[in-house]
Amino acid sequence: MNFRQTLTHGLWRDLPPFRMVLGLCPTLAVTATAENGLGMGIAVTFVLIFSNMFISLLRKVIPDKVRIASYIVVIATLVVIVELAMKAFFFPLSQQLGIYIPLIVVNCIILGRAEAFASRNPVHLSMADGLSVGLGFSISLTLVGSIREILGVGTWFGMAVFPDSFEPFGFMVQAPGAFLCLGLLLGLMNAWSRRRGEFFIQT
């Protein structure tokens, strides 16, 4: 892949979590509101860019046998930094996201990109890949969060979008709504890809 392709592949071709089915837990868990989704997306993007950078820098130094362990140390360090930074600058958001911030550490997207991309590509490409996949993930999370918040609470980023007579269906902000919303979105995405003759997920 050249630089431009690397920079854009995460936005549609491999858009997580729809076309690269990884990282479902945060997609379901923190998307009750658009704001939480966006916050989580940005946190993941930060970790992705820098974990890809460090792993790419160290790819010739790290022996093959301990590579997963080394990746985990690098990723976990970055996650702790994000955790502390969120507490210091976005305290209410960090309370909202709760244990899902430390759980970024086991988000398969990050380890997946480290193993599949950063460990065999130069630094600038790896960082571009991290940025692209991270942005794609943020967009997806914000999208799912927006749908759930608009339908479930009747607001978008906390602003009312419906007149008072609208009765929000609280189902959407609870667990079943999360699964249903993501499943239907995935189906829509597949239908669209199929129409355009692109590959789509069918496993």
């Binding site: 079943p176 499943g183 239907l184 189906g187 597949n190 199929r194």
Partner: peptide
């Protein structure tokens, strides 16, 4: 066809939830 695989799995999970 479009719902096969993960998509229908998620919807089913929603019903179970």
């Amino acid at each position: 066809v479009a719902m096969r695989g993960t998509a229908i799995a998620l919807v089913t999970a929603g019903v179970m939830s």
